[in-house]
Simulated scan of single mutants.
Amino acid sequence: MSGLPHSSHALVTGGGRGIGREIAATLARAGATVTIIGRQRATLDRAVRAGAAHFVGVADVADRPALHGAITEAAARQPIDILVANAGIAESAPFMKSDAALFARMMDVNFMGVVHSIQAVLPSMRDRPRGRIVAVASTAGLKGYPYVSAYVAAKHAVVGLVRSLALELATTNVTINAVCPGFTDTDLVAGTIDNIMKKTGRSREQAMIELSRHNPQGRLITPAEVADSVLWLCGEAAGAITGQAIAVAGGEL
């Protein structure tokens, strides 16, 4: 049982594909009206046609004015009860080859995108009967990985933000948590596999084994496993859960 009120309006950033699309579809099946936001209208529209969401907004989460505009438009249709700040990007490079621009890109999307999203929904959400905010972070927000220092730093920042805001919001009707997936079977990880193959000469199977070895279960996480965790955090039964960073990683942490 999800415990979602049937009148809930959920907004999912980066909801057109991968984990975000699965989260949107899961919330929609649980009875929420779902708006997805992303950069590519065609991708978002495909998700709506497939039944994964009801409405779309086009914006880059790193572009605060555009994002706030898209969220304002969504809230005008129906006040937002649930925010899933999922949009993210990943780039890899050795630390000494990670320039300021790379760090800025990782922070702008992975961290400031979360900040912009929360700041857009929180004022009205606090006036709603209940509010749920879930940031999709990563196990990279809880530990280090080599060659992705900028990404790891940004995801650690997300987890820190969640922990801080949970204390600020503890006396309100709004909870905020993070889910931290391990390597998940998405197109983003497929790109990582391609990168491993290109840089090391390994086969696809060898590259997959390299990623899967981080998970003691010896596999990639599925988007549905992440989505189910988000659904639980958005439900009535999770009202006392706030400020947490929940690893969905097969025992990696």
Score class of each variant (00 low, 15 high):
Met125Gln: 01
Ala140Thr: 06
Ile221Val: 15
Glu22Gln: 14
Asn215Glu: 02
Leu27Ala: 01
Pro216Met: 11
Ile193Pro: 13
Ile23Tyr: 06
Ser229Val: 07
Ala90Cys: 11
Arg128Phe: 01
Ile82Phe: 03
Ala170Thr: 10
Arg46Asn: 12
Glu168Leu: 01
Glu168Val: 02
Gly191Gln: 00
Gly250Pro: 00
Glu73Gly: 10
Thr139Met: 15
Gly235Arg: 04
Ala153Trp: 08
Leu169Ile: 01
Asn110Glu: 02
Asn173Val: 09
Pro94Phe: 03
Ile221Ser: 00
Ile36Asn: 03
Ala30Asp: 12
Leu67Tyr: 00
Gly57Thr: 12
Met197Glu: 10
Ile89Leu: 10
Leu167Cys: 10
Ala245Val: 03
Ala87Lys: 06
Glu168Tyr: 08
Gly38His: 01
Thr192Val: 15
Pro129Arg: 10
Val148Arg: 03
Ala70Glu: 05
Gly239Phe: 00
Leu211Phe: 11
Leu83Gln: 02
Lys199Val: 15
Asp187Ile: 12
Val56Ala: 10
Arg21Pro: 03
Thr222Asn: 09
Gly38Glu: 02
Gln40Phe: 13
Gly251Trp: 08
Asn177Gly: 10
Ile196Pro: 11
Asp45Pro: 07
Thr200Gly: 07
Ala238Arg: 03
Arg219Ala: 07
Thr175Cys: 03
Val114Thr: 05
Val189Arg: 08
Gly243His: 08
Leu211Gly: 10
Gly182Leu: 04
Glu22Trp: 00
Leu231Ser: 02
Glu91Gly: 04
Leu83Pro: 07
Val189His: 11
Glu225Arg: 05
Gly14Glu: 02
Gly14Ser: 06
Gly57Val: 09
His9Val: 11
Glu252His: 07
Asp187Lys: 14
Leu27Gln: 10
Ser212Gln: 15
Met112Lys: 12
Ala137Asn: 05
Arg64Phe: 00
Ala190Asp: 15
Val115Cys: 06
Val115Tyr: 01
Asn215Ser: 13
Arg204Ser: 13
Ala150Cys: 11
Thr33Ile: 13
Gln217Tyr: 12
Val115Pro: 08
Ala170Gly: 06
Thr242Ala: 06
Ala52Gly: 01
His68Glu: 15
Gly16Gln: 14
Ala178Val: 01
Gly201Leu: 08
Leu44Cys: 06
Leu161Arg: 11
Cys234Pro: 02
Gln119Met: 13
Arg49Leu: 14
Gly57Asp: 04
Met107Ala: 15
Pro79Met: 14
Pro79Val: 11
Ser92Asp: 13
Ile246Asn: 07
Asp187His: 13
Arg204Leu: 09
Ser164Cys: 01
Phe183Thr: 10
Ile193Ala: 04
Ala75Arg: 14
His214Ile: 12
Ala170Trp: 10
Thr184Arg: 06
Phe95Asp: 12
Pro216His: 08
Ala224Asp: 15
Asp60Met: 10
Ser203His: 07
Val48Gly: 00
Val148Thr: 10
Tyr145Gly: 08
Val115Gly: 00
Gly250Arg: 04
Glu236Gly: 01
Gln217Pro: 09
Ser124Met: 03
Ala207Leu: 05
Val158Phe: 05
Thr72Val: 07
Glu225Cys: 04
Val134Trp: 09
Pro181Asn: 07
His6Tyr: 11
Thr186Tyr: 06
Glu91Trp: 12
Cys180Ser: 04
Ala207Arg: 04
Ser2Ala: 14
Gly14Gln: 08
Leu44Ala: 09
His214Met: 14
Ile246Asp: 05
Gly18Trp: 01
Asp228His: 15
Pro94Met: 11
Phe111Trp: 06
Ser92Glu: 15
Gln244Ala: 14
Gly160Ile: 01
Ala135Val: 11
Tyr147Thr: 00
Asp194Ser: 15
